[in-house]
Design a protein around this nucleic acid. Structure first.
Lengths: 132, 132
DNA sequence: ACAGCTATTTAGAACCATTATAAACTACAA
DNA sequence: TTGTAGTTTATAATGGTTCTAAATAGCTGT
């Protein structure tokens, strides 16, 4: 199966639940943004027997740690995740809380001129807030 | 008094509580980042009689709406605010969750090439995550 | 200064996303 | 097949934030 090796190679056992979540998250034409609640709904739509909410949280966090998902830095009462793990940025529509991908090429190179001793840059994320 | 007019001009009544919170937030050499919990502690340190947590939340949100504070887009279980309301960005130290200001001049101009119909850009915020 | 009105404060309850718990289950190596 | 460590699960607990409704305080007109 498509995702069994991916999981095994990450040291994650390919359980039924994880494989199903992989299907929902990664077997799509396009990447997308989601909250855990939205993901839970998607999973319920896909199957009849449900996956425990705790498992969904565990899996999402495991996948994030392995780099298969990214958290999006936005102030919201819920945490937003992104299946697009390439370097990119986001529009954030303040009116409805929706996120839109901004390709790196739409932003141009960002040059951080200041350095912090003993630290290295892990990521640079731009959030562009939109209003009417 | 220093902050009475500021509040009145914003349509906010200059109550004892709001004036005290102004002192704590705005009467400093340097701007700073804070969570509501940290602000509550600062207020307690400053006076003996306490301000209700609900009032602190109300006030922080009122100040944010008026543009006297900014929320910082970071994924954390608490909301971070900034008394520095100029255009600027942040380093985010993943190890300890601390934020460091990045002046606009340290980042250089950011040119968002893509437009969204009917929307205008309210702010552009860059978060630079740091690791060891 | 006072009355009356509305904004504000307050303690505590409610809310709700997330995390912890601990028992049942399962993948997998030996 | 069997032991064991990893995983799932329902449910409880946690904790930041918001809500509620009653008490209080600022403000305007008289």
């Amino acid at each position: 199966m498509k995702y069994i090796d991916k999981l095994r190679n990450s040291g994650l056992r390919p359980t039924k639940q994880r494989l199903l979540i992989c299907e929902v998250l990664f077997n799509n034409e396009k990447t997308f943004h989601f909250t855990v609640n939205e993901l839970e709904r998607k999973i319920k739509d896909k199957i009849n027997n449900k996956i425990s909410l705790a498992t969904i949280y565990n899996t999402v966090h495991a996948f994030e740690k392995k780099g298969y998902l990214k958290q999006i830095p936005v102030n919201s009462n819920q945490t937003y995740f992104d299946t697009n793990i390439t370097d990119h940025h986001h529009f954030y529509n303040l009116k409805d809380g929706k996120l839109i991908d901004l390709e790196n090429s739409d932003v141009g190179p960002i040059n951080i001129k200041r350095k912090i001793d003993g630290k290295k840059i892990k990521s640079i994320e731009v959030l562009v807030k939109l209003e009417d």
